[in-house]
Nucleic acid binder design. Structure first.
Lengths: 131, 131, 131, 131
DNA sequence: GTGGTCTAGACCACA
DNA sequence: GTGGTCTAGACCACC
């Protein structure tokens, strides 16, 4: 299985929040589908090099949200009745944008400076970045 | 470990500055070597009889200088590398931009979609993002 | 302040669950009223001799239930809008009874044996325990 | 610490029994003294190359015998006192009853109210509590 | 193996 | 001081 979850140590968000977001993303974007098993707490912990308790906290919060279910001695899985409508996908995208903006402000960048920089760093990958 | 830091109440310098100097001195003189763990904020605070926040301020400034590093849940330690020069600030900003972009890609957004979203969520704050 | 929370090490329930129940009890029985501050996580931890994280977990779950609110750097308190109706009081009592029964079964006692024992041990305190 | 426990695969006794005997021997011979911590279940399992559950079973049996004690989140250790005789079972039951009663009192229930509630909640299981 | 609970003790943000 | 996050690593119940 490819690495499901990626943590950014420079991201100011708590690690367990990043993990939650990565799992939400994987579910919303189809990397994980309803009923599917998630990697175990220990596996994720080993992969992203964090303490199992940190991963556990993320899984626990997602259980409360109703996205995940768990069975002791068995594992965790995406709930069948997890609502995965388009509105949630759009909300996820806006969350990303808001987070990005906060991040930029914290580093002394305003919106225009951020956009300029984004175009610059994207150039090599998108061959001009359009716009 | 013997008392690492000694504060002189008759010294005119702010206490946190004295603590910073004491730690710098310990590193330069070899009392503390690269990679070595520092005593915890609370330990130092208890030893030299100052508020933990004062010690924390000293540690934080030394982190900014690049002399110390810290790992959440573990402690503070002397960094392996030296402090960075001023031009590195620009590099840091580009790192932010690259991180942002990677985050967006992972959520299925390309550059233009991200910029559009950024302008939307920034609108209330920057009135269109150009002022 | 008298000891608000009492933990029973022989109780098989997780400690944080016991703490939750003790706080619910104090609120329902009037020992704590809406808006009132709770002892800090560290205070409770010191009183009942458990790790602060264990107390924190209890507080956190009660926040999610809507019974408690917390403000960082300030403390925790009973929420003004916590519903404390008679139905909840009755439910709390039935929870106690169910727990007691489970406890007895685990120790090889059936209902009648338990009641007999209860009357015996209560006798010195209630002078016969009635009928 | 040198290897505490040695298992003989040609020994007819169950492995967990061998482990129990090895620990008893270590305590009797002074290799382990009262209050001393035992290696963790996982450590022993790794050393003697058996399943952790097997070691756990040995530890659990020794707990029942009264030779070992365990503290959650800390580990297992040799108990200061010896094992208890059989007549203590009755005392344990009375402890249960006393605990139950204290719990009820704390929730504002007297003996009769508790018994009434117990009969109610037991009804579905014991069909009235007398059979 | 799995998830769940707990300890000890660190730093962090906030007031 | 407060609450919040995190590490390291233990035992427990269950499969």
């Amino acid at each position: 299985m490819p690495l499901l979850i990626r943590i950014d140590p420079e991201d100011d968000r708590a690690i367990y929040v990043q993990i939650m977001d990565e799992i939400r993303r994987a579910v919303l974007l189809g990397g994980l589908t309803a009923g599917e098993a998630l990697p175990s707490v220990r596996e994720v912990a080993a992969e992203v090099r964090v303490n199992p308790n940190t991963v556990r906290q993320a899984y626990r919060e997602l259980q409360r949200e109703g996205l995940l279910g768990t069975r002791r001695g068995v594992g965790s899985f995406v709930r069948e009745d997890a609502n995965l409508d388009d509105g949630q996908r759009e909300a996820a995208r806006r969350r990303v944008a808001r987070r990005v903006l906060r991040d930029a402000y914290r580093h002394g960048l305003n919106l225009d400076e951020l956009i300029t920089l984004l175009r610059e760093v994207a150039a090599p990958r998108e061959a001009g970045g359009s716009g």
